[in-house]
Design a protein around this nucleic acid. Structure first.
Lengths: 111, 111
DNA sequence: TGAATACTTAAGTCAACGCTTGACCAATTC
DNA sequence: GAATTGGTCAAGCGTTGACTTAAGTATTCA
């Protein structure tokens, strides 16, 4: 298919990678530099920077460079996009179950 | 990295694909057969079945075959896994902001 | 000024992914 | 019982994605 609802698409794709989720978990403890972010991960700095780009491009993370240090922080709005999509599907599904319950409860209806 | 927290990992990966999300959206309107699920999508039935397998293996969807027709429905618990991960990061982040607020509010502290 | 630090960029490798085709099988319908 | 419908399976193909190495830039420190 490969269509593009720019935001949601990128956000979910970004969260689909375990390394990037690990980075988000670390970042949710507070802002941190790129190399400290990379420390616990068993991959090169270069790879971490690439993941970081993905996270930044989809609005999950925000970074700022001061001197030679780039500091990264979570952008709270980013996660909301994903949370909302899930919430929407969930409530859709629940509404459906409610209507189904109504139908089963009621005796009969004209077509 | 390629580690495996089996569930969350698969769920997010599954939701990372726009076609699969489209399928979830359709399914959140109610159970439906494989071919009706495939109808609005511009790909082969075979491809749809492959996506369906991904969704089923990670617990987002449940299917049942009767006669020659396979019916698919959303498995509500699946989305919860993703929702919870997001919720956890969110609240972690918020708790941190609270603590930060406290520190800024207070005058001084011993190390 | 020279060495170390903290990235950054480019190029290339390899595996996983999304998709198609084509052959197939089991229920249904005519 | 032949054709149709609804789905399954396997192989293959082009693309994308995660990762590495290697070389480079800009800041900071001694």
């Amino acid at each position: 298919m490969r269509k593009n609802k720019p935001d949601i698409d990128r956000v979910f794709h970004a969260l689909g990678d375990p390394t990037r989720r690990a980075m988000m978990e670390k970042l949710s403890q507070g802002p941190i530099s790129v190399s400290r972010l990379a420390e616990p991960l068993a991959i090169t700095l270069a790879a971490v920077v690439q993941h970081l780009q993905v996270l930044e491009e989809c609005g999950l993370v925000q970074t700022e460079k001061v001197g030679r240090v780039r500091t990264c922080r979570i952008e709270p709005a980013g996660l909301s996009v994903a949370a909302q999509w899930i919430g929407d599907r969930r409530s859709m599904w629940e509404r459906r179950l409610d209507r189904l319950g109504d139908l089963l409860a009621e005796p009969e209806e004209e077509s």
